[in-house]
Design a protein around this nucleic acid. Structure first.
Length: 483
RNA sequence: GGCGCGGUGCCCAAGUGGUUAAGGGAGCGGUUUGCAAAACCGUCAUGCGUGGGUUCGACUCCCACCCGCGCCUCCA
């Protein structure tokens, strides 16, 4: 099965064929950097990171551009309010974003352009749009004449006349049509401004993406992504600008991730119902968060609840505990000498092998419009095969988990390190003293040695009350886990 | 008001016009264990929002309705 992806433009799944076979050019709308990024931003970043990883796994060379909007009302207002330089403020939140996304396992994009560095490109495109009859200057502003572009609405499925009757669009003094949007805004006092043929000013929001995509990927490229909430007007306007200026198709495939919700409502700054990535990482391991973010189809809404995060942790724990078991059973590198392991590495497992089916089903799932929940099901089929003790399954597991890690971006850490991290985080959260746990375990060990099971069970109950689960190993040692 | 998306077991979440509706979590029974934990085995939706229709047959297609959400204004 070849990769199928849902194209918002066509409203259906279609086979993905890059313009140049083996090479994918992709642009994803990043964030406006005026505050700390929240989990909704993380969902978008993680989604497209997974997409890029999988495209690369399939053997494509991917150029992945994700922008920063660093010229914007919110940034300017906040900078003025806090008496900071707008550029410094933007950079501060860019750093925060990059750090957060990197923690969540997102690889750095090929390019992360900033709007402020493409002012000239924007002026060039605006001039081109005026030449082409799609834009007009009016008292220092330049507007896009929406009705001049007859494809307007093709992405969002909106009809211009319906928009008009919406009547929520304010008629600006200089706009010829209430639907027209700003490409260039005349300078106001206290705002950053650049010289232009239309007077001092700054760009509108949408033009930057058209220009940065053109500069870094060309007039036509393969995939344009972003959050569902950007379909209109942002992406619709990008199409109008780029196709109006360049005279050719802009992006071939449009992909949109669903929103991250709280109580089934979109997490957003304006509603105030958001958690920053920092907030969430105080309580959950980054890999757990990433697991959670990919646990539903990327196009569906995803509801944030502590239970969902707790469930994600349990599921990921189960995967890692399986890895730890495989490692301790095979004593590590010994797996290299196993023919099944070698075959898995080479991707040539016999088709009858259960492990062969994992790889097949896993890629089938992701080929089906990046169906991560279906891929998760395959992982747990593999977990079961391995824990049953099937020798081939055990041998193939390390390679399988490598593929999972390469494509989904989790489960690839050292298992012992992961488990240790969970313990530390849980200890931190609960405030339980590890030394006290060790002491109780030592007492229990003594009681058990003396066959005083009443006492040893009492100690275990005490530990359970503290949230500690213990596991006696055959070698006489005891593991503990805080939940 | 316009456009669009979704309603699947206790929770989360895939999926298909027709033999047994994935997977995770929780629960329950079992194997194992001194007892536990983990793991494994079994069990857990005669039903997939409601009411109609199409069909030999629909949860999957169509219509209506109810409910939730998104966009129409900045928003990943």
């Amino acid at each position: 099965m070849t990769l199928q992806l849902y194209n918002t433009l066509k409203r259906k799944k279609e086979e993905f064929k890059p313009i140049t076979p083996g090479q994918v050019k992709m642009y994803v709308c990043g964030v406006t950097v005026w505050d700390y990024c929240h989990l909704g931003h993380a969902r978008a970043a993680v989604t497209f990171d997974m997409v890029v990883r999988y495209l690369r796994y399939l053997g494509n060379k991917v150029t992945y551009v994700r922008n920063f909007t660093d010229v914007d009302d919110k940034i300017i207002n906040r900078a003025n309010k806090e008496k900071r330089d707008w550029k410094e403020l933007a950079q501060f939140y860019i750093d925060d974003y990059e750090k957060s996304m990197s923690l969540l396992g997102c690889e750095s994009p090929s390019d992360e352009p900033k709007a402020s560095e493409y002012i000239q490109n924007m002026q060039d495109m605006i001039a081109q749009l005026i030449d082409n009859g799609h834009a007009y200057a009016a008292s220092g502003d330049v507007f896009y004449a929406v009705r001049s572009f007859n494809g307007y609405g093709k992405l969002s499925g909106k009809k211009i006349d319906d928009l008009e009757s919406g009547a929520r669009v304010e008629v600006g003094e200089t706009k010829r049509d209430p639907l027209d949007f700003a490409l260039w805004k005349a300078a106001k006092p206290g705002e950053p401004a650049w010289k232009s043929p239309w007077g001092e000013g700054r760009p509108g929001w949408h033009i930057e993406c058209s220009c940065m995509a053109k500069a870094l990927l060309g007039d036509t490229f393969d995939i344009h992504g972003g959050g569902r909430d950007l379909i209109f007007p942002h992406h619709e306007n990008e199409i109008a600008q780029s196709e109006g200026a360049n005279g050719c198709e802009f992006a071939r495939y449009w992909m949109h991730n669903g929103t991250l919700d709280i109580d089934s409502e979109k997490m957003s700054k304006s509603l105030g119902n958001y958690f920053t990535v920092h907030d969430v990482l105080k309580n959950y391991d980054p890999e757990v968060v990433r697991y959670f973010l990919l646990s539903a189809n990327y196009r569906s809404p995803l509801n944030y609840t502590t239970q969902a995060l707790d469930d994600a942790k349990k599921a990921l724990d189960k995967i890692y505990e399986t890895s730890a078991r495989v490692k301790s059973n095979s004593a590590g590198p010994a797996a290299d000498g196993n023919p099944t392991f070698a075959a898995a590495q080479a991707g040539s497992l016999p088709s009858a092998s259960p492990a062969h089916m994992w790889f097949q089903k896993f890629t089938d799932a992701l080929n089906d419009d990046f169906n991560t929940p279906k891929a998760y099901a395959v992982i747990f089929d593999a977990v079961r095969d391995v824990n049953r003790g099937d020798a081939d399954a055990v041998a193939a597991w390390p390679r399988f988990i490598e593929v999972v890690s390469e494509t989904l971006g989790f489960a690839g850490s050292n298992a012992d390190a992961y488990i240790e991290r969970q313990t530390q985080l849980a200890t931190q959260k609960s405030g339980v003293d590890p030394a006290q746990i060790e002491q109780l375990l030592a007492d229990r060990k003594a009681a058990r040695a003396a066959k005083d099971f009443k006492k040893s069970d009492e100690i275990r109950d005490q530990l359970t009350a503290m949230g500690v689960t213990i596991k006696d190993r055959p070698d006489g040692t005891t593991e503990w886990k805080l939940s």
